[in-house]
């Protein structure tokens, strides 16, 4: 199940976003304060985290920085009515966000951005799994090689035993 976290101090923003994401089949969790969103980060692994920029108590950049520490794999997006340069710079440099979305938004912008964030998350995850698999298989290979080397060291020639078609050991008497 793909989990999405949305944080904005304005509840109506959250319901409007939830409506846009209704048909995607994702589990969408919405929060109006950063504290409860942080609590949710302890218990649920999110694919995508979207936060408002300007909020009371904790701003969006601080929240996303925190989210990045907690769930570094989750893709972070920022949604803001503040199009000023400094807030964008902070969001990119400090929270390392994937997209900066502005209010008001177009339906397709939100859907496309979150969809591609979900894709990115899945590709990253898949990549990591494949990498793990390659590593595991490499380890296995190395172990086998080492075992062969050890056997050869203890019993020279043992790794070069030849068998014929019936599986019988061919002993070469020419030494």
């Amino acid at each position: 199940m793909t989990h999405i976290l949305l944080l904005d101090d304005e509840a109506n923003i959250l319901t409007a976003l939830r409506r846009l994401l209704r048909d995607e089949g994702w589990q969408v969790d919405t929060f109006t304060d950063a504290e409860s969103a942080i609590d949710a980060l302890q218990s649920t692994a999110y694919s995508v985290i979207v936060s408002d920029y300007k909020m009371p108590v904790m701003d969006g950049v601080t929240f996303l920085q925190f989210a990045r520490q907690r769930q570094p794999d989750a893709i972070r997006l920022m949604l803001s009515g503040h199009g000023d340069r400094q807030s964008m710079i902070n969001a990119i440099n400090r929270a390392e966000i994937y997209r900066f979305l502005s209010k008001p938004w177009e339906e397709y912008e939100i859907q496309a951005a979150i969809r591609s964030a979900v894709d990115l998350y899945q590709v990253t995850l898949e990549n990591r799994q494949l990498l793990d698999q390659v590593k595991r298989q490499n380890d296995l290979l190395r172990q086998r090689e080492e075992e062969l080397l050890r056997l050869e060291h203890d019993n020279p020639g043992i790794t070069r035993v030849r068998r014929d078609q019936d599986g019988s050991i061919v002993i070469n008497d020419v030494l």
Binding site: E10, N12, I13, T15, A16, L17, R19, L20, K54, G81, H82, D84, S102, K103, P104, W105, E106, E107, I110
Partner: peptide
């Protein structure tokens, strides 16, 4: 004005989005 723009962008944001829905 900058502050007010933000104040207005929030409601305009969700009203606009809701119209699309």
């Amino acid at each position: 004005a900058a502050g007010v723009a933000h104040e207005i962008n929030n409601p305009v944001g969700y009203v606009y989005s809701n119209l699309q829905t």
